[in-house]
C-alpha cells in the first residue's frame, strides 16, 4: 500500500495532499456560509476610522494587544461584554492578536478618551507608571494615508457588499448611516471634518497645525479608530 506509494512520487504527492487537505475541507469551508453575518449594532468603518485601523496595523499594535474578550468573569469584569462573532463582520483582517503584553482593546472606546490616548501615546509611563509600552512620537508628525483607506472602502463595498450609505439598525433602536463619499476629494474632506472633531480635544501643537493646513496626522486617525472600539 504505502510501500507502493513510496516508489511512485506522483501518487505519493497526491495521497499526501488529500490527507492534509481533508481537515480544511471539513473544518473551514462549511462555516464560511454562517460565520460572517453582522450583529445588530455592527457598522462599517468610516474613512477616518479605517485610516486609523491601517495605522494600528502599520505599527503592529496587534503584536501586544488583543481584541478578543473571552467569556470569563475575570475578562468581562476587566474589559466589558465578551466578544461575539457578528461584531467582527467588517474586520478585514481580524485583529484578535495572540499575546496580551498590554491589555485587550476590543472595547477601549468605552473607558478611554481622546485626551488620555494623546498623553499616553506620547509617553506611556507618564500616564501609567511602570508601563513598558514604547513612545510613539512619530504618529504626531506622520500624515495619515486617507487615500488607501478610501480605496479599501470602495473595494469592500463593491466586492463584499459592505453597507455604506445605508440605514443600519443599532442596539437602542435608532438608525445609523456610515457615509462613503463618491469621490476621493469628497472622502478626504469628510475625513478631515471627522478629524477636526477628534483634534478639538487634543493639545499637541503639531497636530493642530497639521489639521489647520488640511492634513490628518496618524495619531488623529488612530484615536478615531480606538474611540470607536466599543
Amino acid at each position: 500500500m504505502f510501500h507502493w506509494l513510496e516508489k511512485r512520487p506522483f501518487f505519493f504527492a497526491v495521497a499526501v495532499f488529500v490527507v492534509i487537505a481533508f481537515a480544511g475541507l471539513i473544518e473551514i469551508l462549511p462555516n464560511f456560509a454562517q460565520a460572517s453575518r453582522p450583529i445588530i449594532g455592527a457598522k462599517p468603518y468610516s474613512t477616518l476610522e479605517l485610516t486609523g485601523r491601517l495605522v494600528y496595523i502599520k505599527n503592529n499594535c496587534n503584536a501586544c494587544h488583543s481584541q478578543l474578550i473571552r467569556p470569563f468573569k475575570s475578562e468581562t469584569d476587566r474589559y466589558g461584554h465578551y466578544s461575539m462573532s457578528g461584531e467582527y463582520a467588517y474586520d478585514r483582517p481580524f485583529l484578535w492578536g495572540s499575546k496580551r503584553t498590554g491589555p485587550d482593546l476590543m472595547r477601549v472606546g468605552n473607558y478611554r478618551t481622546t485626551d488620555w490616548h494623546e498623553n499616553h501615546m506620547m509617553n506611556p509611563p507618564e500616564v501609567v507608571p511602570g508601563s513598558i509600552m514604547p513612545q510613539y512620537p512619530w504618529l504626531f508628525k506622520n500624515v495619515a494615508d486617507l487615500d488607501t483607506a478610501y480605496a479599501e472602502q470602495l473595494v469592500i463595498q463593491k466586492v463584499f457588499a459592505v453597507p455604506y450609505n445605508t440605514e443600519l439598525p443599532t442596539a437602542d433602536g435608532s438608525k445609523v448611516t456610515v457615509k462613503l463619499a463618491d469621490t476621493l476629494e469628497g472622502a478626504r474632506a469628510e475625513a478631515l471634518e471627522d478629524a477636526k472633531v477628534v483634534a478639538a480635544d487634543m493639545k499637541n501643537q503639531d497636530v493642530k497645525d497639521a489639521i489647520a493646513a488640511g492634513n490628518v496626522p496618524e495619531i488623529v486617525a488612530l484615536i478615531a479608530y480606538l474611540n470607536r472600539l466599543k
Binding site: 467588517y90 478585514r92 483582517p93 484578535w96 494615508d145 487615500d147 488607501t148 480605496a151
Partner: peptide
C-alpha cells in the same frame, strides 16, 4: 485595492478576502 479602484492609494495595499471570525479561522 489599487487596481480595482483605478489607482487610488498605495499600489501594494490589499484587503483580505475573509472577514472577522472566518479570517481568524483561516
Amino acid at each position: 485595492t489599487y487596481f480595482l479602484t483605478g489607482g487610488i492609494g498605495n499600489w501594494y495595499h490589499s484587503v483580505s478576502m475573509y472577514a472577522g471570525t472566518n479570517d481568524a479561522l483561516v
